[in-house]
Design a protein around this nucleic acid. Structure first.
Lengths: 210, 210, 210, 210
DNA sequence: TATGAATGAGCTTTCATTCAT
DNA sequence: AATGAATGAAAGCTCATTCAT
């Protein structure tokens, strides 16, 4: 007798399917324009079932964000321990974004458009994690300035924005041009280029401030 | 006998008031979430009046975009004639954005969030002008590469995105931090810094590509 | 010195222009769909002015109906006095409708579509005149039955409807086909034909009832 | 174990209920004045549900018309096969209208007021079926003229209008008087009378044309 | 007289959410 | 677990009507 395969891990599975569908639809239409019906249709289930797994549309969105932040913060913790150099940590972040863009382009797109670009729309709770993230990058930048890797006449917070802006720009470009990352090598090349452009660009100027 | 000046130009004035309110509300909530009611309330008029001046919400949005593109393209024409160097033109663009951000922060914010960041959502007509804009920057970048000002191993289109991304990042930062530009000097300093970071960062590497 | 020709009879003139425009627009779109703006535009005036001459849209409509009924009842009075035969009176009615259709096709069309065909929409006041009209035709029919001109096994009211229905059908046909009445002769021919069809059709059957 | 029968065919049932309510409301107020709220209220449901079953108000209206035309054309096909004489076919049409008026007075009323009387309002798609219908009657009339059943000096299209006008008049009369058809016998009597009036009225005149 | 800016009730439509089955 | 019928708040848009000029 064949095992009813929809049982054991079914809950987790369905949840994932819904989350993935939600990502796709939210990426395509934006959070506010994404309809539960679309998400359910994409997931191949009825819209009523979405409410069996998630309390509300906001709840569903929060689950997506949670997934994103959990992974990211876990990795950043790890880097803190295993990567001594600031450059390495920044490089790891670039790679992480490109990696994620390869694996979960929708998720990265949502992070960029729905979080970092429309921070003014966010609920306080959602804004919180974003701010924590910014602070962490900011302290990396401050450390880099202390180590004379980056010019000190630009506020760390601004450097943070320039850095993230560069990553976002690249990914946005690829999204817009519909260019998926094809090879490991290409990814590495882009990551290196990106980091270089930033580090060179923000390198301390000879003879001091602007 | 001087006439009550609230009559003569009343139509243009009201239109401007509505446009301005629309900018503000759209910036605060995004185009789709911006309600006519809010716009009217912000303008201190009844929502019916909005429809007296604009055919529809989309029409109102188009009027905002038109204002933006008209000004920008007019200036770019002028630069083409009066500014010989690529650096000068890029610098002028940075200054323009910062200027506009000072005068019309909402408008700049809308450009960034509703146009350059959600280009995939735009109607063909709206997308058109954005694409024209991108092409113009792109040819500037190509020219800069030809003049060995910028490294040639990154596609001009990508350089375009990095450049605009840097501008956007800066402005986003200021929006997020709620930091208005205070002085002419500050604006000049930021503009120079921004341009330097970009030019230094994307400067040709000794010994060639990648 | 040229006389300001817009003065003396200006009120009456404007009123007529508005009424005529209203007729045309109401015919084209129906009463409920006819917008004051359309009427004003057709009349070549601003919509505000309509309210100078008519209290409201309903008032305007009533003025149209009044015109129609006043003329019609005046003529019917006259026929009552000068036309002895029932046939003559019915013939006069047919001619009247065709005459009016020639002179004021919109008005006839409104009578047909907005009054006789959608009696359920009418306000009690408007319905009143229509019912008076029906009664008068009905008594003509009863008289014709008494004179053995028409079969008696159909209620006079039904004969009334058949008769008016025939007129309406003809005119509707012409409206639909966009066929204006071209000559006096054509009008006369149609009137005669119409009356004949009705009188022949409703002539008492040999040997009596149903 | 018999299932609660309110479930199985619930969809079809609700749709019918809505269609019926729509017919009633549209009859009472006309298509443009019929509010979804009224229709829903009449059906005893919330207005949102109307949109669950029909895409839009226009869609709902089209569904009504489709019902009407489908039935009518199906029958006309059948007559074409089984009824040899023109008289029989015209008679069948009269009976059909009276039948329908008995069963679905609202539907008949809508056909008369919203379709045959306001052809100018109709969308091309809606007008299409009406024109097809008219053509079919028209060819019946032409055939009847060929068989010398009807006078030939009136265009078949005009005869069509007179014929339909007569039917409409009768039914309008009954609508206006609020007189439902009471018995089979009464229906038969009216049908016969109506057909007679038309055929007698439009019978070829001795000695030829008008 | 004449204009059209201004108002707001009222209508269609969308969609998150609930709930009976 | 799963469905989709049912609800109703909310938003865009229309248009009769008022009123300052």
């Amino acid at each position: 007798m064949i095992r009813n395969d929809s049982s054991t891990e079914s809950r987790k599975d369905k949840e994932s399917v819904i989350l993935e569908s939600a990502c796709r639809v939210i990426r395509e239409r934006g959070f506010h324009q994404a309809r539960i019906t679309d998400i359910a249709q994409t997931a191949g289930i009825s819209y009523g079932l979405v409410y069996h797994y998630f309390k509300s549309k906001a709840d569903l969105f929060d689950a997506i964000l949670k997934e994103w932040w959990t992974d990211l913060f876990a990795l950043m913790e790890e880097w803190e321990i295993h990567k001594s150099g600031v450059e390495d940590q920044l490089g790891a972040l670039v790679i992480y974004f490109l990696d994620q863009y390869q694996k979960r382009p929708d998720l990265v797109h949502i992070f960029i458009t729905e979080i970092s670009r429309s921070a003014s729309n966010l609920t306080p709770a959602r804004l919180h994690w974003f701010k924590v993230f910014l602070s962490r990058i900011e302290s990396l930048m401050a450390r880099a300035q202390y180590q004379k890797l980056l010019r000190s006449d630009i506020k760390p917070r601004y450097l943070t924005y320039i850095f993230l802006g560069a990553i976002e720009s690249f990914i946005s470009a690829m999204v817009l041009e519909n260019q998926p990352l094809k090879s490991r090598a290409q990814k590495q090349r882009i990551a290196t280029g990106l980091l270089q452009v930033f580090l060179n660009g923000a390198r301390p100027v000879k003879g001091g401030a602007s």
